[in-house]
Design a protein around this nucleic acid. Sequence first.
DNA 1: GATGAATGAGTATTCATTCAT
DNA 2: CATGAATGAATACTCATTCAT
Lengths: 211, 211, 211, 211
Amino acid sequence: MSTRIPKPRANMRKEPRQARSRATVEAIIQAGAHVLGDQGWSGFTTNEVADVAGVSIGSLYQYFPNKLALIEAIRRKHFDDVLAVLQQAGESRNSPEQLVDDLVHGMISVHCINPALHRVLLDLPNLEGSRSAYDEFHAEYLRRYRVVITAHRNRRGGAADGFAAQVLSSAVEGVIHNAARRGTLKLPELKQELRKLVCCYLSRATLSGSS
Amino acid sequence: MSTRIPKPRANMRKEPRQARSRATVEAIIQAGAHVLGDQGWSGFTTNEVADVAGVSIGSLYQYFPNKLALIEAIRRKHFDDVLAVLQQAGESRNSPEQLVDDLVHGMISVHCINPALHRVLLDLPNLEGSRSAYDEFHAEYLRRYRVVITAHRNRRGGAADGFAAQVLSSAVEGVIHNAARRGTLKLPELKQELRKLVCCYLSRATLSGSS
Amino acid sequence: MSTRIPKPRANMRKEPRQARSRATVEAIIQAGAHVLGDQGWSGFTTNEVADVAGVSIGSLYQYFPNKLALIEAIRRKHFDDVLAVLQQAGESRNSPEQLVDDLVHGMISVHCINPALHRVLLDLPNLEGSRSAYDEFHAEYLRRYRVVITAHRNRRGGAADGFAAQVLSSAVEGVIHNAARRGTLKLPELKQELRKLVCCYLSRATLSGSS
Amino acid sequence: MSTRIPKPRANMRKEPRQARSRATVEAIIQAGAHVLGDQGWSGFTTNEVADVAGVSIGSLYQYFPNKLALIEAIRRKHFDDVLAVLQQAGESRNSPEQLVDDLVHGMISVHCINPALHRVLLDLPNLEGSRSAYDEFHAEYLRRYRVVITAHRNRRGGAADGFAAQVLSSAVEGVIHNAARRGTLKLPELKQELRKLVCCYLSRATLSGSS
DNA sequence: GATGAATGAGTATTCATTCAT
DNA sequence: CATGAATGAATACTCATTCAT
């Protein structure tokens, strides 16, 4: 179903200097995200992306040394979006309930832009080259979740919080990605249930963390 | 990255009648599951599968009219495994707590066989042909979750139960698939946390379902 | 003018077992040699070779993992031809004059098959992978020349013989390749002059080796 | 491995008039020679050459209508260098031995500048367009060799001298190019042996030319 | 004039699928 | 029925060349 994937060489062959080229790069990443979300790995061909972006295949390769570098760029872009949401959710000086609300709302919003994309992005083959970028993201990702978890306690969080963060984040991911697949992402009921899920897990986690 | 996927023509070119044939088909499906879980879509080529199965590519095409039919067979097989687990969990005449235990334990077990496979299977491009089979599975899948949910109530379940089933199942999936990716699937802590997640959601769901 | 050349992975993807496939492999190598000699590196495209061989591009890649492996096969084949000539020239129990005659005649003959090919083959980029094969050939090549040189002496050959072999072989190569380029390879005058060149160098080399 | 080479349209799109332009052209030719010698045909791309020359690709095409015209310019430049050497060697009113010395020394020197370049230059695909330029050079090239040959005789040279010139020149070329490839070009032994080769051939050629 | 972004035909390579043996 | 050689459409990527700024 696919070409064996090569290691990414570098992330950008050439930094776009002029305004025109920056627009081109932007268009390519946009188009790539769109194609990837829409058609999955199968439909993601560099020629297709170039087509959708309205540029020639040559232009694509002027800025991205290979397909994977393009994927990485898309990935990085969307990781940034996700982190931004979590950042906001973490920074608000609100009640724990409000925190959960912000988190859930933010996660849903960010997935509404291109619902299928995020799940696809997780399925990247384990590239050595891209691993670090992903790990870096993921560390930050978990850290933000931990903030939310900690805020829900009265006591200091223990080592178990790391585990709780993993469980919580992947549960949320699961729910959102599935909802994205089914097109129920924008339903208020979904948000409501998700909030419930998070909230009750947080309460219980606190208790049983001590049990 | 991939060949555009054609619609599956028929699911089986030819029903295996003799024992030898059935063994061949079985070997191919096994090999396919193995390759798919191990290498993902990228490594899943019919030639590779035939190789691993120890049969010629010609034989593979004797039983599966095309790649997609093979994928479908693998899918169906593993859906059956999952359903069997849920079936058992649903049938035991135990306490609600025990029910959750069975469910969690079963889901984890079934993913331990070939941890990566299940998640990969969800990433099938939206094929018209395979949709029905999947939907059929998914309906049953949710029904079983609903049984667990219902068992946790004292009152009769309302329409909201359908939604709860979706949320619960995808949360569990999310946690398990992520754990599979990280290799923490067998950790007792994981099972413990997952149980916690399910339990508390079930309790709360009951309450807020009425709220 | 060309794609950057990748390292050769292995020399054969799959050993041809049936008679049919052996014929295919043979045809591909033949066609490759032909194209390479005829059009040089520029015209040597795998598609062209497959076309000339009368097989599909897929068949080519069934046996040669990449373009370079094909080139290597061609190279090896023709190195073998050259060595065979030198072998024969070295083995005949004749007078030194006869030896030179055999050498010159053999070298010319072997270049008549596909005159341009040999020169092109020397210009292979320095591939790590192929280096050893070439060095091995070249060592043997010089050894055979040394036999001829030694046969021309009355005294034992010294260290200088190694150098003489290099000079002599490259002079002969130069003359033959140039003649091949000009199409004068079959002219009796060429053979005559070449013989002269070799003979007189051999005589003088003997003397001045001691000077 | 390569783009099919088009006929060169004209040799220069535009004659450089100002000093700056001439410097640019010079830089491009220098860079081209460097890249060609260093990386062979594979690495010789117009973009690479422009980069090395420190000019934009657009500027390159301002002066050379296409890649081949650039190659031709490089070729012409280096042919000129070679001819200059032979010129000098032919003009000195010295003994025949001194003549050979000059020739050999000169040929070696001229190849020391960019050892690999010359051999690479011979591998040009047979372009109709460039043929005349090359033939012109080659005629002159042989003429100079003939001077050396003639100087070595007491009698007038016959028709055979033309042939002898070809053989001698290609033998010398062969030795030098091979030495360049092996990095032994500067070794005094090489010069010594080459002198020997030329000398003895000249003596013998004289004799057998009459035989 | 100079620049470098954009172009797209061309090239290497893969992989689902067929069919003669 | 089984085999595996053969096929070729599809895909990643390059590089000579143009042209708007």
